[in-house]
Amino acid sequence: MKHLQISPAWFFTDGQGEQLDPRLFALLRAVHKQNKLTQAAEACGFSYRHAWNMLQHWEEFFGTPLIEKQRGRGSRLSPLGEKLLWAEQRVAARLEPQLESLSSEINLEIAHLLEGNKPVLRLHASHGYAVALLPKHMGELPLDLQYCSPADALSALARNACDIAGFHLPIGTAQALNREYRKRLKPRNHQIIQFITRRQGLMVQAGNPLGVKGLADLAEIDLRFINRQTNSGTRSLLDALLKEADVSSVKIKGFEQVEFTHSAVAAYIAANMADVGFGVEAAARQFGLDFIPLARERYVMACHKQLLNDPKFQVFLNIIRGEEFRKAVRLLPGYSGDDCGLVSTVDETFKAREISIYEA
């Protein structure tokens, strides 16, 4: 199957409407990682001359260097080079859920036109690194993946607007949050598919220069915090953890500043626009940040019982139970897919000791 992928494009206007070459960002990323232009060019598949000419062209365009040569230490990005790189990564990270949802809709429309109306599996889910892997592994199974908050996903399931709803359950903490999700599910009507487990915590700048150790430091240290939007599952988890730790969000500088994905929070910190954020470990590692684990959670999916016998659902289960998908999950820092594809009842899921809402 052919898949359309939507990516943001950059336009810098100099009166002639010249478009910034997107390959420049790949080169800037490689210079940032390799610290040598020769190795950066090789990593991008460019000749050294081509890479050098590209940099010269855009340095003339902006009127300032994009890289700085260091005697005996290779090259590093200039302040403008760093700003361009982090801006590109912030834009991509912030728009990722919307673009993926839109591309899913368009791909399905194209598939219907070319191949007819095949059965489609509709998944509404909270955005995350493991969920984002699904479209790449579905093969011939048409997947309509729409990102939304856990509450909205479960509401969509209740009104039959989706087949599967993805949400996450904290392990051993924030049980009030689990109780809220439990109220939305009916044991006689629903089943739970185990998906992955992941670690959430504080993302801090490399080396943790402020010495942040836990949630209390967010209110006690003079730092800049970057938050998630109020309706996200990760924000709900953070709010619950702060309440358990008796930490007032009013005392956290920047608590009202929000981004819309884990990677967008990490990119914001990597760009030195904030000191600390809350999210998954995979995002922190992606942007070279340090990570302080605070919670583990199970990412699960709910469906109506009658879906269990649907052929397209069986295909979906076989894919997420397969070694290829589990291997991809294992490559994500802080993620585990050991129980991926295990089907259980609502009561079995919520009575499990690690997420039990029944214990005192």
Results as ranks from 00 to 15, higher is better:
N178E: 07
H137D: 04
G17E: 08
A43F: 15
G74W: 04
I110R: 15
R298H: 12
G139L: 08
A161Y: 01
P150C: 06
Q200S: 07
Q257R: 15
M203L: 15
P209N: 01
A151D: 04
K83S: 08
T173Y: 00
R159Q: 07
E348F: 00
L218C: 02
F350R: 03
C44L: 12
W10L: 12
L289R: 03
L145W: 00
F255Q: 00
N227K: 04
S104G: 11
R330V: 00
S236P: 00
F316I: 05
P209V: 09
Q19N: 11
F62H: 15
Q200F: 00
Q70M: 13
C162Y: 04
I106V: 15
L99N: 12
H124Q: 09
V280T: 07
K351A: 08
H262K: 02
N160M: 10
N35M: 04
Q200R: 05
P119W: 13
S248G: 07
L66P: 07
L55M: 10
S149D: 07
K69S: 14
E323C: 09
G166V: 02
T345L: 05
Q306T: 10
G63M: 01
I221G: 01
V346K: 09
A40Q: 01
T230R: 14
F260Y: 14
E140M: 05
L114H: 13
A284S: 10
T38I: 11
A92I: 07
L289A: 06
G322N: 11
R29K: 10
E59T: 11
L202D: 03
L177N: 09
R298Q: 13
A328W: 07
K118Q: 12
D163N: 06
P187W: 06
Q229H: 07
A328P: 06
A51L: 08
G211A: 09
V343L: 04
A271K: 00
A284T: 02
K2L: 10
G288N: 01
K183G: 00
I193L: 10
A176I: 11
K186D: 14
H112S: 15
A30D: 10
F61H: 13
L134C: 10
E354G: 03
L37R: 04
V280Q: 06
Y268D: 05
L308Q: 10
R182T: 00
I226H: 01
E140T: 09
I164C: 00
G128R: 09
D21T: 13
K136Y: 14
A93P: 14
P170G: 15
A267C: 06
A26R: 10
I355W: 06
R330P: 02
K243E: 11
A26Y: 00
E68F: 05
E100V: 11
H50M: 07
E18Y: 01
I269T: 05
W52V: 03
F225N: 02
L113W: 08
P333L: 09
E324A: 11
K83T: 07
L294W: 10
L317C: 11
N189M: 03
V131D: 03
R228S: 13
L55K: 05
L84M: 15
I319V: 05
Q56K: 13
G81W: 11
I355V: 11
E68T: 07
V315C: 08
A206D: 10
E115W: 12
N117P: 05
Q175L: 14
E220S: 08
A216W: 08
Q191R: 03
P135F: 06
Y147S: 03
R73W: 05
V258F: 01
G45S: 11
A267I: 13
A245D: 08
K253W: 04
G277S: 04
A216F: 09
A328T: 05
